Computed example of a mutant assay.
Amino acid sequence: MKFLFSLTNFFIGCCLASHAAVISDRFEKEDFIFKRSKCDYCGYELSLLDEIPIISHLLLKGKCRYCHSPIPIKLLIIEIIGGLAYINISFNQKSGIADAILIFSLLLVAICDYEEMEFNLAMLVPAIYLALITEINRFPSYRIADYIEFVPILILLTYYVLNKKLGSGDLFIYLILAFYFKPQFADLTFLSASIFLIIHFLLEYKDNFKGKEVAFIPYIFIGLTLQLLIH
């Protein structure tokens, strides 16, 4: 039963991640709600069978059914990570629905940050709202330990933002995670993200990584996914 629950959630997460990729590509450009998806190369509208997350990619061997152009592997990776992020979400509870909305908002931002190194702040509005509502209700129960886990990291991130070594979006997301979950959860997420980023740099830029710029939010989302799986 647990396996079926996880498998169903994984597939739901893959579908949501696939739609997030569509939104990030069409945001402020064209309709991403009613307009059908199409191949970026030949422009042919895709059928429902062509849009089944992961499965369609594997059956089509990573190529468009119509023009046989390669489907970007990043889409498959986005679907897999999105599926993993939703595995433990309880969609039959209000708290689970709130979790799902917040995760989707952050995933959308992560995809945009990866593609453009920036994102529209409107994408974070649902996550900001949920975080503020949660924080208002939780604040009276904060312990000294929570402040110890929160304040030093907040000061450090603010310092890096002011010195333009970190984007303000990263700070926003830290606050969202700290308010919605807990400061410790946010700290562990950012620690995991930093480790994944270091590994990536060592593997890809081991000879010369000085001055390289990289989108950090995708790594934050991967760190968030890891924490959601552990917790």
Rank of each mutant, 00 (worst) to 15 (best):
E30R: 15
P183M: 06
K2P: 01
S168P: 01
E79S: 05
A98M: 09
I128Q: 00
L224N: 00
A100F: 04
G82L: 08
I176R: 06
I220S: 02
S24V: 12
L46R: 10
P70T: 01
G167F: 09
Y174H: 05
A85H: 04
I97P: 05
S141L: 12
F104C: 07
P126A: 00
L7W: 08
A100P: 04
G13A: 05
V109N: 02
I71E: 09
K61A: 12
L58M: 08
K212F: 09
T158N: 07
S56I: 01
Y219N: 06
F185G: 06
E79Q: 14
P72C: 06
I81V: 15
T189Q: 03
T189K: 00
F196V: 09
I176W: 04
I54A: 06
I128Y: 07
I222Q: 04
E204L: 14
L154E: 04
K35S: 12
L106W: 05
K74C: 08
S95P: 03
S168I: 11
I54R: 02
A17M: 11
N9H: 00
C42T: 10
S192L: 07
G62R: 02
S47Q: 09
R138N: 15
R138P: 08
I144Y: 12
A215F: 09
F139H: 09
Y142H: 13
N163P: 00
N120Y: 14
L166A: 02
D25C: 12
S105C: 09
